[in-house]
Design a protein around this nucleic acid. Structure first.
Lengths: 243, 243
DNA sequence: AAGTGGTCTAGACCACATT
DNA sequence: ATGTGGTCTAGACCACTTA
């Protein structure tokens, strides 16, 4: 028996193209070679290549224009669009906030987070508290977030090298331990501002905040990050489109 | 010039199959004829038919099993799963609440709703206030909702016939004015319970509630319903999966 | 062994954008 | 006129399920 898992050609092609995009071979906004050229490169038929392109299109990595070509989506992957995909201001403008890390440390994982990350009790996690600030107005705090990452993913080298907590976490995961966010689950509820949060968000202590708990999963559906975000619901909102 | 819009075969087939499912030809759980049989029925190639089936599969209307066949998804369409797709209890169990209409009437559309529904100022809408109750415990109120539907969609006949407000609205839209929810946008924020809501949800007046504003669009991307739901965030939550 | 969906190919023609 | 993506076909072979 062959233990190697079967992987369809179109999936392999899809992954390869995505890697080449991430590697910078085709920066956002540029056009890919046409279908026949790419199919030739990979030695597959046009149909197979097209299936890969369609998947990347539905995942918003590519945009296709009949008669023009296939464009790399004009999204700043480096600035972790992913976690902010759903947060916008009251004018429905999507936000791409900058990051400010308040502090980070290694701690035993809190129980409720351990369950979500599928960790043993008290297993060590890297914990960080950060602010996300408006791009155009850097004293306006959009949200306060707590992040938990299992320490087991970091090599000793990585931990030593890490003199500051990386801003662009999703890019960091990829370069450091080859993990890409494949899916995520967000649970929304309400939390009340503690003294510190009230200060940063410029609201009264005890004010109701919109709470977003996000668990991120890699390609193998293993949870590798938990993120708790709190936003002022009077300035920002959470928006979902369902098709 | 031909003003008729071009519609690909696979889309026509897709819509036809969906209609036949809705019409009850293939009840949930049953298996469709195989690809070749269906392709023959429609007089299209297997590839074209497969494209239709794949679209319906990704829309969760069908489930396909290699070697077995194509099954109609086991979802109770009649009970409007759609609007509750994202609400679950604290054990992550999805909810399918029953409905109780408190009252309904024809009113001039409030301005903020008129904008979303693309109506003229003061245009008449049918407004309803309803409770959604736990299926297994009918005195437990999951949420309170306000619904606004443009009156122009209703024929005089429809309005006369309507002695009670229909529970299964999405099914009603389809049978009465042939509109099916094609997409919806949900905006989440926070609201505070007024006296009436507090009573129903069994919370204190002024308690922070999770507010969900949903605008529903038909196949032509015309808004045709606005729905404002308020839930107790300590008992229920809103959950999104992102791929 | 027979039947189903899953993958892959090769080629035709159409619709749209650019030159 | 040319090049791009979009649609559609026909047929081959593979992987999985059931009998």
């Amino acid at each position: 028996m062959n233990p190697v898992r079967f992987k369809p050609l179109y999936q392999q092609v899809e992954e390869s193209i995505l890697e080449r995009i991430y590697a910078g071979e085709w920066p956002p906004g540029t056009f890919l070679p046409n279908e026949f050229a790419l199919a030739d490169q990979y030695g597959v038929s046009q149909g197979t290549l097209r299936k890969a392109l369609e998947a990347l299109t539905s995942a918003k990595h590519l945009v296709r224009f009949q008669g023009k070509g296939t464009q790399v989506a004009d999204i700043d992957h480096e600035n972790s669009i992913f976690p902010f995909y759903h947060i916008c201001d009251m004018e429905n403008k999507r936000l791409f906030p900058t990051t400010q890390t308040l502090h980070y440390e290694s701690i035993p994982c809190p129980e409720e987070v351990a369950i979500l990350l599928n960790l043993k009790k008290q297993e060590e996690v890297i914990y960080a508290k950060r602010l996300r600030l408006l791009e155009e107005k850097s004293d306006e705090v959009v949200l306060v977030e707590d992040i938990y990452i299992p320490k087991k993913f970091f090599s000793k080298e990585e931990l030593q090298k890490m003199t500051v907590f990386p801003d662009r976490l999703y890019a960091y995961y990829m370069t450091s331990f080859g993990k890409r966010v494949n899916s995520a689950v967000e649970e929304l509820s309400i939390a009340f501002a503690d003294k510190e949060e009230a200060k940063y968000l410029n609201v009264k202590e005890g004010q109701a905040l919109l709470l977003i708990n996000r668990t991120s999963y890699d390609a193998d559906n293993e949870a590798f990050e938990f993120r708790r975000s709190k936003i002022n619901p009077h300035k920002y909102k959470y928006k979902v489109t369902i098709d």
